[in-house]
Design a protein around this nucleic acid. Structure first.
Length: 506
RNA sequence: CGCGGGGUAGAGCAGUCCGGUAGCUCGUCGGGCUCAUAACCCGGAGGUCAGGGGUUCAAAUCCCCUCCCCGCAACCA
């Protein structure tokens, strides 16, 4: 049996995640469910990044401890995930003891072997903005260096910090990226990483801070806490029970290396350069692939809580149903640019595809099966026709698209037999066949074709819409959870239930 | 010459790698059907595929140039 390990990036627990953040969890969940259908031994990990200065400050402002603060945010996040039927095998928080214990020993090991060293980070600091800038970021004005954001003068600041020696792994990493075209996906992002960072030369990066305390302590140097990279990125192996001293647990031995890390384009750099560098230093195999997805925008604008333009998955799921939200997110995200989401767009897409095409096909097909044959449709011979041929062909194409994480294409393909079947009804006019007792077998063939189209869709769409497809399968008299290679049955015993996708009225 | 992405019907998008009558959804106009969630099916109108040049029998698709929009530009998650 193949194993399949997939992860989301772990969101920063600084605020409740909006639909744009939740999209990633939905995508990863659908990928995990798809591989489960294929029969793979799947492990799906997600979690939260809970340390850092920003959280320390937000907690202080809220008058709570940082731990209380992240407990609240992480609970909100899990509520969002739950509302979308995102069901990971494990959920890791970087403030958990099991994580911190391992991270501390990892850090020490890297330090002992010389991959982490003490140095100083020099930069520019804008006091009013409380922001650091690098040499290349600050604007050089006549009056001296000024803040690129607000234009006020910045001060030179020097902070003692530990660095990870990424430069030592630059050549190996460049060679790996070159030799494994699938390592960074999609390809346009790979080019961005290579041209933007690898070719100019990879520099060491800072892995500790002395300016705040809410982090994993560097035990051999009090005053330092770990900065985000070592702490957060390592969640992918600490959750599996990795042991820097060579006694890693069963899960780690079974699932590492990861098959695909799924994350936003904004953090792709850290996952494709920093993280592999650290893994090389630890002597561990690199993840097989890393996929950077675009973002969802609200009316072509970045979602912002403060501007009131954020949409939350839980609200959408409550209003329109979890299946609609999952379907929309995975159907509408374009391949190579940011997607748009709004109530209007979601309602339009779901009404067209789910209510009018799929839901209505189920409704009319099952109703006819009950009306004409009391729900039992067992033709003497399994029919062969264009619609059934399309079902088989489309399923293969769905598989190809899902393997490449192209959910937009996968869903378009999965829906194509449904659209074709609606036309098939007009072409065959079953209500006319029903008036002629001598055409009973023809009528059975037509209804079988329709029900088999629905069964096929219940498999190909199951990873994206587990709830609704489970209900559809129940109406078709099939087990609620399918397997990908399900054999078409000789016939169907159906029973009409509630409408699968009620039309959305705004 | 910093890097990358985008600019295709009123709106939102696919097609561009592997040139060959420009496609999908919504909207709109007309027709059909009555099994169905006022859903389904057929047809019409609507695009010089950002602009210019080149290659070719043929270019949205390949090459060159220009314009516009967006993201990134190293320690921000």
């Amino acid at each position: 049996m193949n194993t399949f390990y997939t992860t989301t990036s772990i969101p920063y627990a600084s605020q409740k995640p909006h639909i744009g953040n939740t999209y990633e969890a939905i995508l990863t969940d659908a990928v995990a469910r798809y591989h489960k259908l294929l029969g793979d031994d799947v492990y799906f990990l997600t979690g939260t990044d809970e340390h850092g200065e920003k959280i320390e400050r937000l907690a202080e402002a809220a008058g709570v401890t940082p731990q209380q603060f992240v407990d609240t945010v992480t609970a909100e996040l899990r509520h969002e995930w739950d509302a979308c039927m995102v069901e990971p095998d494990d959920f890791i928080r970087t403030t958990e003891q099991r994580h911190m214990d391992i991270v501390k020993r990892m850090f020490k090991k890297l330090y002992d072997q010389g991959d982490i060293y003490k140095g100083a980070y020099e930069g520019w600091y804008c006091v009013p903005d409380e922001a650091f800038y690098t040499d290349s970021q600050v604007v050089k004005a006549e009056s001296g260096h000024v803040c690129p954001d607000c234009g006020r003068p910045v001060e030179k600041l020097k902070e003692e910090t530990y660095f990870f020696r990424l430069s030592a792994y630059a050549d190996r990493l460049a060679a790996h990226i070159e030799a494994h075209p699938e390592f960074i996906q999609p390809e346009s992002r790979k080019n961005e990483m290579v041209n933007g960072y690898v070719k100019p030369g990879l520099q060491d990066f800072s892995v500790s801070r002395t300016s705040f305390t809410w982090g994993v302590p560097v035990e051999f140097d009090p005053g330092h806490v770990m900065y985000v990279w070592v702490d957060a990125l390592s969640n992918y192996i600490t959750a599996l029970g990795y042991d820097p001293d060579g006694k890693s647990g069963e899960l780690f031995e079974k699932y590492w290396p990861c098959d695909v890390h799924i994350l936003g384009k904004d953090v792709l750099r850290f996952h494709t350069l920093y993280w592999p560098g650290m893994l090389m230093a630890l002597g561990l195999p690199l993840p097989r692939s890393i996929y950077g997805h675009p973002w969802y925008l609200m009316n072509s604008d970045k979602m912002s809580k403060s501007r009131g333009t954020a949409i939350y998955a839980s609200e959408l799921a409550e209003r329109y149903g979890v299946d609609c939200v999952r379907y929309y997110c995975l159907r509408e995200m374009p391949v190579s640019r940011d997607g748009n989401i709004s109530h209007e767009l979601l309602a339009s897409r779901c009404n067209t595809d789910l209510a009018n095409d799929l839901g209505n096909l189920a409704s009319r097909s099952i109703t006819m099966a009950e009306k004409y044959f009391q729900g039992d449709v067992y033709p003497e011979e399994t029919p062969e026709n264009e619609v059934l041929a399309l079902c088989a062909a489309s399923k293969d194409r769905v598989k190809g698209a899902m393997d490449g994480l192209s959910t937009q294409l996968a869903l378009t393909e999965a829906m194509s037999p449904v659209v074709r079947a609606n036309r098939f009804i007009d072409e065959t006019s079953p209500w006319i066949l029903a008036k002629d007792p001598g055409k009973a077998e023809d009528l059975k063939g037509v209804l079988y074709t329709l029900l088999e189209t629905l069964r096929n869709a219940s498999v190909t769409l199951y990873p994206v819409m587990p709830l609704a497809m489970g209900k559809l399968r129940a109406q078709l008299g099939l087990p609620e959870v399918p397997v990908w290679e399900e054999t078409p049955p000789k016939g169907f015993s159906v029973k009409r239930g509630e409408n699968l996708f009620p039309r959305i009225e705004l």
